[in-house]
Each structure stands twice: as C-alpha cells, then as structure tokens.
C-alpha cells in the first residue's frame, strides 16, 4: 500500500516535471508557427481531459462534450468584447458551461435515465446548440456589442491580457505559456480530485453503482458534480481555442467535433489522464496532416480510426503500453496473475 502511494507520487512528479520541461523547452525548439500549432493541440488536450475524466473515471458517456467547449468559446468571446478585460471573461467561460452542465446533469442523473440515453440526450443538446448558433446571423442576435454572427461565427476576438491590464494583450508566444499552464493546472486538479475521497467514490460508482448506493453514497449527486467539473474544463478548453484563432464559429458544436473528443480519449486510453492528452495531440496532428492533402476526405480516416480502435484496441494505447512495460520490467511470480488489461473498462 505504501509502495503504491509512493509510486503514485513518483508518477505525478514525473508528469509535472515533463509538463514544465515542455512548457519552457518547446519555445526554444519550435518557431512561432510550430508553437501556435502546439497551442491548439494543448487546447484540445484540455478538452480531452474533460472527456477522459467524466467518461474514464465517472463512467458517464457524453456524446456532447463539444457543447460545453463551444459554449466556453462563445462565452469568452462575448464577455471579452463587452468587458474589455479578459480576466472576468475567462472566469465566465468556465462558470457558464459548468452551470449549463449542472442543469443538464440534474435533468439526466436525477431523471435516472440509462447510460445510452445520456449519450443520446447530450447528442441532442449539442445538435440544438449547433442549430441555434447557426441561425444567429443578423443585428438582432447581438449581446452588448458582440454580434454572434450566425454561421460565420465571431471573428477578431480580443486575446487574453495581463490580468487587470486590458491594454497589454498576450502575443502568440505568450499564449503558449497560458495554454500549457492551463493544461498542467487541469492535470494537477484532476489528479488531486481523483486522489481525494470524492474521486474514490466517483470511481466506485463507475465500478458498481448499486453497491456504492447501498454503502450510502448518492450516485446522482456524484455524477452531477463530475459532469459539472467536466463541463467547466471543456469551457476552459473552448476559451483557449477561441484565443488561439481569435475566432469561434458554430462548428465548435458540430458532431464531428464531439466525435473527435471521444476518439482522443478512446485512442489514448480510457481510465487514464495521460492517455487523453497524448490521444489529443496525436489525433489533432493527424487531422492537420489530412487537412493538408486533397485526395481523401478527413472524415473517412477519422471514422476508420474510430472503428478500428473500438474493434481492435478498445482499451486504448496507454493502458496497452503500460501493461507491456509492466510485463517487461516488473517480475510477476510464475503462475501468478498477469496485469489485467480490462481494468480501465467503464
């Protein structure tokens, strides 16, 4: 037991160190264009963490994490255009999606609808938001002095600034530090949550909801809180994404976006935090490569990857690699049980 805790701290320290090295090292390796690319990868990694947390640990199958992502992006854009200072806008971009997730989660979890219905309801809500934001063209749909712009989205959104100094915006190089810093913060937060009593109950509910309920925990409340936290993190990712391109459009709500988030987690590995981050970077990189060529439509490749992983590697890359490493480096007694790959299944 003590060994497990120690190795937990060791892996946490290693991850934190790696994150900090990347944060301060990459600007010396990449030029500005490369760094911008990495910034969007990191924004997607934050988004993947939100899905990885609620799905891999909370057992909640959300097909609409892009709803909170898009809401976060739009909230930031509208708020920063009206407030001038970006600090409050960022807070709103986290709080509003979280509040929306809480409302939706109350509806779903306190309605005790089954897992599959949660998937379909989140999917439906995403389609609703996509349709609504698509039809917001025209002067009528202007919040304060921020026109929503319908299908064309909102261009030239002001970037983040030094808190309290709206006249000192971050340049793209500095945005990288903000994005990577957010990713590290979210990772640390989720590690903390999972190590806490709350996180243990969340995982217990994923493993066996009835048993957790009989032990006196209310699964509805725990699922609601998990879902809300995930919504807030996805909102932060949307805020980073809007900052990256100074642009947000209804495609943030699209089903293709939702599918990508799920693929990030599935490819990287369910029930891990590292997996979604790596999955996001790898898939996003692949999508960028596909976008550069004209022969094959991107959806075809993304779809085939998704089918392939569901059928062949349903537990994702990180757990598989971890098991292989364990088998190589940790001696298991002969005839003893090998590490079980299916541990991370929801």
């Amino acid at each position: 037991m003590a060994g497990a805790i120690a190795s937990g701290w060791a892996s946490f320290a290693a991850m934190l160190l790696a994150g900090l090295v990347l944060m301060f090292g990459l600007p010396h390796v990449f030029d500005l264009f490369g760094l911008l690319q990495m910034t969007v990868f990191v924004a997607m990694a934050v988004l993947a963490l939100s899905q990885g947390f609620i799905w891999g640990y909370g057992g909640i199958m959300s097909f609409g994490q892009s709803a909170f992502f898009g809401l976060g992006g739009y909230t930031y854009a509208v708020a920063v255009m009206n407030l001038g200072d970006s600090t409050g806008a960022v807070a709103l971009a986290i709080a509003l999606p979280a509040a929306f997730a809480a409302l939706l989660g109350y509806f779903m979890f306190y309605g005790r609808i089954s897992d599959a219905y949660v998937g379909v309801v989140t999917l439906t809500v995403t389609v609703i938001l996509f349709n609504v934001f698509n039809s917001t063209a025209g002067d009528w749909y202007t919040i304060g002095n921020a026109p929503l712009g319908g299908f064309n989205g909102m261009p030239s959104v002001p970037p983040l600034n030094i808190p309290g100094h709206p006249d000192e915006p971050l340049d793209p190089g500095q945005l990288w530090y903000a994005a990577m810093g957010s990713l590290i913060l979210v990772y640390v937060l989720l590690r903390g949550v999972l190590a806490s009593r709350f996180g243990r109950v969340v995982v217990a509910i994923r493993e066996n909801e009835t048993r957790a309920m009989l032990l006196g925990y209310d699964p509805r409340l725990y699922k609601l809180l998990t879902f809300t936290l995930g919504g807030g993190i996805a909102g932060l990712a949307g805020c980073l994404f809007t900052n990256w391109g100074s642009f947000i459009s209804p495609t943030a709500f699209s089903l293709a976006q939702s599918a990508q988030i799920i693929i990030f987690v599935l490819v990287g590995g369910l029930g891990t935090l590292l997996g979604p981050i790596l999955g996001a970077v790898a898939i996003q990189y692949m999508v960028t490569l596909i976008g550069a060529q004209q022969k094959v439509d991107g959806n075809l490749i993304v779809g085939v990857v998704l089918i392939g992983f569901v059928l062949l590697v349903p537990q994702g890359v990180v757990p598989v690699v971890r098991n292989v490493l364990q088998r190589l480096f940790v001696r298991t007694p002969r005839g003893g049980t090998a590490p079980v790959a299916s541990e991370a299944r929801p």
């Binding site: 097909f63 998937g119 799920i262 991107g298 959806n299 075809l300 779809g303 998704l306 089918i307 929801p346």
Partner: peptide, 16 residues
C-alpha cells in the same frame, strides 16, 4: 457503448 462508438465511426467514414 462500443456499438455506439463503432457506428459513429461508420457514420464519419461514410460521410468521408
């Protein structure tokens, strides 16, 4: 859930 994911992959692949 796996069926949902696989058919979603199929959906994207067909669009593509």
């Amino acid at each position: 859930i796996d069926t949902m994911l696989a058919t979603w992959g199929l959906s994207l692949a067909l669009i593509g």
